[in-house]
């Protein structure tokens, strides 16, 4: 495994470096700082997939994505966009990216699945408006995607 570099996060890095077992881990904020800045086209009202597609390419190095193998659960309608529960499973996944088209930037979270990890995750996300929630998982070197439209009645991104 390549030696991870944890530079540029100031004081926090001192704390991280002090924990030797974390050196094997991947902090994508450090490794891929640019992916977090990939923008959604806000004029498209949650319908533009260009940001998500660019993020997939930047995170996984490929945009060849198949449907299937990823199970995604998200509400059809979210009354409160500030708290949208999202769950996903992708058996055998080594890496999973959670993205959406509703907020100013596309990427929400990137998971690395450790040896004892089980890719069955739940989080709560903010959605400023109606949009697509997209989960892409890397399984046996291939990319698989699941997608769902969540209708947001009250936006939750301070917008």
């Amino acid at each position: 495994m390549e030696r991870r570099k944890f530079l540029g996060m100031g004081a926090g890095m001192v704390a991280v470096l002090a924990a030797p077992s974390m050196l094997m881990a991947t902090n994508y904020r450090e490794k891929l700082p640019e992916v977090w800045k990939i923008k959604n086209d806000e004029k498209a009202k949650g319908e533009d997939m260009a940001g998500v597609n660019a993020a997939i390419k930047a995170i996984f190095g490929s945009d060849k994505v198949e449907e299937g193998k990823v199970k995604l659960k998200a509400p059809d309608i979210a009354e409160n966009g500030a708290v949208v529960p999202v769950s996903f499973k992708a058996e055998g996944a080594k890496k999973i990216a959670l993205m959406q088209t509703a907020d100013p930037e596309a990427v929400v979270a990137i998971f690395d699945v450790p040896e004892r990890g089980i890719p069955d995750y739940s989080v709560r996300i903010k959605m400023q408006q109606t949009g697509h929630v997209v989960v892409v998982a890397e399984i046996d070197g291939k990319l698989y995607k699941a997608e769902k439209v969540v209708k947001v009645t009250v936006g939750g991104c301070g917008g």
Partner: peptide, 27 residues
């Protein structure tokens, strides 16, 4: 971590809800 081994790892963004809640499993 569980007994010194990393069992869950995620890089996150501004789009997780306030007071983030997470659920996960490990072997």
């Amino acid at each position: 971590k569980n007994e010194g081994a990393v069992v869950y790892e995620v890089s996150t963004s501004q789009f997780l809800s306030k007071n983030p809640y997470m659920k996960f499993y490990f072997k």
